[in-house]
């Protein structure tokens, strides 16, 4: 694949996503960053997975000021381009449709993002804890910026491990 061919992939993504695409950027030939609204997010992920043949490598959640940013890294193996599908999930509801509902590969990573960042994935087939124990106190999301390093109000049995 030459660089020109790789740059033409963003046109393909633009065409496939159509009106729901808010912004698209290709800073390097093998990296695309596409932004959609949170309401359109599962639909956009479905298009990238089914129509463009994307393989969900993983997803990243990232806390920004009044939202949690979700980035789903889809590898388009045939085109040799990594397509990062982004959305902002607004606080304090933090609700977004689940991609794991139709893509089994997103099942675990959405469970991890749900417990670590408090994002609710609506329609997720198996919304249990993944890495944290089942008795983990509600409303404690360890990867949030405001998560206290030495939380008060926990009894000794329930106190999260603090290093």
């Amino acid at each position: 694949m030459t660089d020109e061919e790789k740059y033409s992939v963003s046109e393909k993504v633009k065409k496939a996503l159509g009106g729901i695409l808010q912004n698209i950027d290709q800073p390097r030939p093998n990296r695309i960053y596409a932004v959609v609204h949170q309401d359109d997010f599962p639909q956009a992920a479905k298009i990238v997975y089914e129509k463009l043949g994307g393989r969900l490598a993983t997803s990243t959640a990232l806390e920004v000021r009044d939202a949690v940013e979700l980035i789903y890294h889809f590898m388009l193996d045939a085109e040799q381009v990594l397509c990062n599908l982004k959305t902002l999930v607004a606080k304090p509801e933090l609700k977004v449709g689940s991609v794991g509902a139709f893509l089994p590969g997103a099942d675990w990573i959405e469970r991890e993002m749900a417990e670590m960042f408090g994002v609710t994935f609506e329609g997720h087939p198996d919304p249990r804890h993944l890495l944290l124990p089942d008795g983990w106190p509600e409303g404690n999301y360890p990867y949030r910026c405001d998560y206290p390093q030495n939380p008060e109000g926990f009894t000794d049995e329930k106190r999260p491990v603090v290093y």
Binding site: N30, R55, L56, A57, M75, D77, Q80, V81, L82, L103, P104, G105, A106
Partner: peptide, 25 residues
Amino acid sequence: AIAYCATGPTSRPSGVPWDVRQDDP
């Protein structure tokens, strides 16, 4: 293998030729 997004020597024996060394050299 495609649905679970398996990689490496777990997906390649199933006929899915995903290898990052080749797909994104």
